[in-house]
Amino acid sequence: MRTVRGWFQDTAGGLPRTFWYLWAGTLINRLGSFVLIFLAIYLTQERGFSAAQAGLVIGLWGAGGAVGTTIGGTLTDRWGRRPTLLVAHVGAAGMMIALGLARPLWAVAVGALLLGAFAEAARPAFGAMMVDVVPDKDRLRAFSLNYWAINLGFACAAVLAGFAAQGSYLLLFLVNATTTLVTALIIFAKVGETRGPVTTLPVKGMPAQAGALRTILADRVFLGFVALNLLAALVFLQHISMLPIAMGDSGLSPATYGSVIALNGVLIVVGQLFVPRLIKGRSRS
């Protein structure tokens, strides 16, 4: 018992209250993250679009996410973490409902593009807020716990959405929108602005934002890391695009796909809690 208590204290103890509000919001949001998991199945089986058209829509979601992340990062620094998170979550909830009600391909495509932009705009603000409120010595634990919540919610959502999809696909969009709004409500009620005074000095002769971009583009290690992540994502994200379509073509139900894809989250949930202790004291590289 003492060992379990000590392990729990090492894993989750001493983190600030604001972190746990953010953690709870993440878990609730991910428990209802039905739309992206089942978007390919919805487009091909429910709406009758081809695999190429479904791939185009999901690709537009990714393109919107790339733009949204960039805009979200800029707004996080200029506008603040809290307002960026609130606007991103409320906008994403609205676009989920709009996407669920859209009928023509062009409307679905535009809805996916805007949904990706709003949904991913929250990521930089959330990460910045985590860094703001968690001391440096505890950040590895904090991000590990948050990643654990993401995958716990993902695993549960995949199974639940698989069964819900057999009744009504619109229900997936409505539940996802609701959990996103609940997360926004938690941030609105319990989380204050965490951005401190801006200390970054601009490069001489150019605005601060341009100077920051120049610094990033000159960092070869960081750019190499980004390139490796891009290559990994090209393979990994097939689990929400081509994998569900291929399983559907093989006669497998949405519930079966949900159970299979949930295994990914389950394995991460089981392993993630032990990773920080395994890599403690080791080189990050």
Rank of each mutant, 00 (worst) to 15 (best):
P207D: 15
A212F: 09
Y42K: 00
L234F: 15
T256E: 10
S283H: 13
L278G: 14
A177Q: 09
G62M: 05
L113H: 10
I268T: 06
A88K: 00
G73Y: 12
T69A: 15
A112Q: 07
I187Q: 01
G25A: 14
G192I: 04
G72E: 11
I187N: 00
M242E: 05
L114V: 14
D249Q: 15
A149S: 15
G271M: 12
L174H: 04
L115N: 03
T76L: 05
K137T: 10
A88V: 02
A98D: 02
F49P: 00
A51R: 12
G153S: 11
P276A: 10
G62Q: 03
A212L: 15
F19L: 12
I261Y: 14
R17H: 11
F8M: 14
T178I: 11
F38E: 00
P124H: 07
R284S: 06
R47Y: 05
T215I: 00
V198W: 03
G72H: 10
A189P: 03
L22D: 06
F274S: 07
L230S: 05
V221G: 08
N146H: 07
A66D: 06
T69G: 15
K190N: 07
G14F: 08
F225T: 14
I150H: 10
D219S: 13
I187Y: 13
M247R: 10
V221N: 07
A161K: 06
T70E: 04
L185A: 15
A52G: 06
L39H: 08
N151H: 13
N176M: 04
G192S: 12
H89W: 05
G68M: 06
V191E: 13
A210Q: 15
G211M: 07
I240G: 00
A158E: 09
Y42A: 02
Y169F: 15
A189G: 04
W148C: 06
V159C: 08
G94W: 09
L140F: 08
L85W: 02
G251H: 01
V134C: 09
A121R: 02
A102R: 08
F222T: 10
G111V: 05
L31K: 07
P135M: 01
P244Y: 11
Y169M: 07
E46G: 02
I28T: 08
S250M: 15
T215M: 12
F49C: 01
A40Y: 13
F19C: 12
L152F: 15
S168E: 09
G116A: 07
I268R: 03
A233K: 12
P16Q: 09
K137Q: 12
A54T: 06
S285M: 09
I97E: 06
G55S: 01
A51E: 14
